[in-house]
Simulated assay, not measured.
Amino acid sequence: MQGDTTDELEAVLEYETIAVVGCSSTAGKAAHDVPRYLLERGYDVIPVNPYAEEIFGRHVYDGLGDVEESIDVVCVFRPSEEVSEIVDAALERDDVEVIWTQQGIRDDAAAARAEDDGRTVVQDRCMKVEHRRLAA
């Protein structure tokens, strides 16, 4: 299902655990500021970045397959050409309900694979912007 309607986006924002692939330790970058915003609003943010050990005082996982906690949403802060591989990793997990690619990031073929597998997909939207618009 494409998560494009207001109702669908509101439903996605109800989930609690968000694995952020490409989460950055550098303040001022969207890949740091957006997950921090979500964390500050009560979401359980799980950083995924093979080049960092700790972000927001939390352990950082190298990849989605390494995450021990249950994941509701995979939020992607990586270039569009990396989305297919990330979606494949998400589809290997039974717990991921939603794959969300941030503004400027999309892969329609990978999104179709995820939707065919019963996952909700939101592409090319900022989670912080949508949260502010719908939940704040």
Score class of each variant (00 low, 15 high):
D66K: 13
D108P: 04
E97K: 12
K128Y: 12
Q2F: 11
L64N: 04
A19I: 02
E69R: 06
E130T: 01
I105R: 03
S24T: 05
R132D: 07
C126T: 08
Q103W: 11
K128N: 13
A112V: 09
E81C: 15
W100T: 04
M1T: 10
E54V: 14
L64R: 06
Y51E: 12
D108I: 05
L38H: 00
A112G: 07
Q123M: 14
V129W: 03
D95F: 15
A111K: 00
V87W: 15
A135Y: 03
I105N: 01
P35Y: 01
D66Q: 10
V12A: 13
R41N: 12
R119M: 10
V34S: 02
E97Y: 13
C23V: 12
E85H: 04
A27Q: 14
L64S: 06
A31F: 02
S80H: 10
Q102D: 14
E130M: 02
D107W: 03
V67K: 13
Q103H: 12
W100R: 13
V34D: 00
Y51W: 10
Y61I: 05
T101C: 13
G118S: 06
A110H: 14
G118I: 11
E40H: 15
E40R: 06
Q2T: 04
E40P: 11
M1W: 04
F77A: 01
S84D: 15
H59P: 09
A136V: 05
V67M: 15
F56R: 05
E16F: 06
A11E: 11
E130I: 00
V129A: 12
D116T: 03
P47L: 12
E82M: 07
V60E: 02
L39M: 13
P35H: 11
M127C: 08
T17R: 09
A89V: 12
M127F: 15
D124P: 00
S25G: 14
V21E: 09
F56M: 12
D62E: 15
